[in-house]
Amino acid sequence: MKAFEYAAPRRESELAGLFSGRPGATAVLAGGTDLVGLMKKMIVAPDRVVNIKEIASLYGISADSAGVTVGAVTRLDEMLDSADLDAFPAVKQAIRGINSMQLQSQGTIGGELCQRPRCWYFRNGCGLPTELGRMVERGDNRYHAIFGNRGPAKYVSASRIAPALVALGASVRIVGPASGEAVEGPPKNGAPVAQDGNALGEAIMPLADFFVTPRAPHQGETVLDPDQIVTHIHIPRDEQIASATYEVRQSEGPEYPLAAAAAALRIEAGVVTEARIVLGQVAPVPWVSEAAAAAIVGQAVTPESARAAGEAAVARATPLSQNRYKVQLARVSVERAILQAAGLETGGF
């Protein structure tokens, strides 16, 4: 690990003075289950690590009639134990799928969303994505993308929970240094407003737009620029929405799935009137399948209609040389996520 400076702010406002603006200079530490391993391998080598777990406002789960807000450093096991999240089975099923007590009690929801790709080229120091695209195309791409893989990025988005959250219409709050004039008056008591250009700003956006496919080496896997962090995730409440996550895994251990899907369905009088189907582990972003949603809307959920939605989801897949098998797994994931959301037997094991 490269030596680094360390800070553990206790308030969101203190973040303003800790960022340098240089890409890669500062790493944000939450649970550390991904970052610390990456720093040991020097894949990530920051000059400063900012531990955001001591910021009280970033911690905890709160619910009201509009929905549930989860602070970014809330641990995954706390989400599992929270009755407020019972209304979102897709989220709890995704967390359960992580299958490791240690990862669940150490890992945070913000870190889970911001974890880096598991791509073994990336994890062995080849970077993302640049000329890697060609390397992956010719090389061992059995775990790589079958959608959204025509550009240089061929890896798959790592987050296990994002497909469920995107399907449920979650949004994310981002905080970071902002430019422009301060909204308030002059800085008081030496507060770091404006003086150093490090005033804080925030943005709230749909989680679906948070993940992006990089086209060039300096671009990341999310919209986050250097020094921006996720602070909260909000899931809108809708009693009529049934949801589920289905993952296909190679073993019972804490491995990443080969394919996954989350389904959020509005079922009225036995018929699906609204659907959001999001695939995981198949594209550089959580992959929203409008084709699958269109196939199931207007139908009753049956083994046949779920299968048709699965087939619609993968009709335009573009597998690489070694991952054609994932097309079948993605199809089955969609089919079973839909069945599971509707409370039907999914089959398989």
């Binding site: 406002s57 981002i174 905080v175 240094p177 902002a178 909204v183 943005a203 986050l224």
Partner: peptide, 16 residues
């Protein structure tokens, strides 16, 4: 997102 896309918020948010 670039800095201009972030709406300025007040520093000095309370501890809670």
């Amino acid at each position: 997102m670039n800095r201009d896309q972030l709406a300025r918020i007040a520093v000095g948010d309370d501890e809670r």
